[in-house]
Design a protein around this nucleic acid. Sequence first.
DNA 1: CTGGTAATCTAATCATGATTAGATTATTTT
DNA 2: AAAATAATCTAATCATGATTAGATTACCAG
Lengths: 210, 210
Amino acid sequence: MARKPADQSVNKEDILLAAADVLQRNGYEATTMKDIAAEVNLTAASLYHHFRNKDALLLAVLEAGIEHILSQIEPIAVSSYASDYKLRQMIYAHVTGLTNNTAVGAAMVFEIKSLVSIKTAPDDGRDPEVAERRRAFIARRDQFERLFRTVIQEGIECGIFRAVDVPIFVKTLLGAHNWVGVWYRPGGRLNGDEIADRMADTFLRALQTS
Amino acid sequence: MARKPADQSVNKEDILLAAADVLQRNGYEATTMKDIAAEVNLTAASLYHHFRNKDALLLAVLEAGIEHILSQIEPIAVSSYASDYKLRQMIYAHVTGLTNNTAVGAAMVFEIKSLVSIKTAPDDGRDPEVAERRRAFIARRDQFERLFRTVIQEGIECGIFRAVDVPIFVKTLLGAHNWVGVWYRPGGRLNGDEIADRMADTFLRALQTS
DNA sequence: CTGGTAATCTAATCATGATTAGATTATTTT
DNA sequence: AAAATAATCTAATCATGATTAGATTACCAG
């Protein structure tokens, strides 16, 4: 499990990676600070030098994840290629993103719930900063979804795609993608690229006019 | 939140429903025995009269959920209608199942991870009975997935569907479905039936020969 | 080198939440 | 209605895990 020789000091990057990994394996509540610390050969207490608390750490993981994905998807979405080409590329980017970094991917998918869950969240007076970042994160999520909607809407308008119920179609698409983060295991019959391909086929077929 | 007048004594059914509900809201780890108990106006301690422990309770929720869904899907899958008709019905049953009982649906989707998660599970010596039921549950899950695969395979063989990569297609389909349990909220623009319809359209289109 | 900051550590604290023990009360059965 | 059983309760226990306090150690600027 240990990834490093346990020598030099650790930076936030390392911790985020390790956290994403543990998070994927165990889920938010079941992941202890100690688990994360162990992954980078630190003690739990040391993590507090880098992050205010567990929530802040989780949030940082998710932020990194979504920014990464957005940085891949956004340029495609706003490019001027044909809608079908764009959609295929976006699907490809998203799915391979999830399969390449399973950790962040699955953490992202699942932990959103912890994040949105009202348990800790009801106008969480305790840490206004975290509350704010939480809000920002959700906004990015929405942004992400919107990119897909826009591309599909475009495609419909210029007649490349048949007229589907865009919001539902996008939820369907993203649900399928997200689930990949759950079942995908490296070394299976297909690699991320191949999976992405097949999924893109499915959804582009579904949008085909005829 | 309280569903009952808090009078007569409570039975397992009630507890399972309540648990599913809380589970959906908070997730496994974040759901306390007290939360569940409160939902049926009991104390946490009282729950132990009905279930050996928290794991057993969760498992019972999931078992009930999957049996219910299977009881809906299986008859359709083994019937002798045309594959496309069967698939549409199965999608419909699954999706509306998830939207009707959001609680069980989402709990099912998410909590599988807790269940499969190795945290509590590594040949869990502590409670062999629970370990066994856990195994059985996973088997039912697989059975469920297999029903979809079979129907699609059939359809391909008799030329109703185009030749897709069946395992991936089914993961795609089920991922999309499962996600419904996450985003669906009663009272939205569309009800369960309408959502199911649109999703069925999407996937049947994707399978269309042409 | 030498002070100062950064990164860690060890050893508490503190809170939460599962589980158990030992009554108590309600319902059935005979 | 007495005995037995079921369903609850209250009041511990016990363990875990987040967070804090107070050193210690490592590393960098002057």
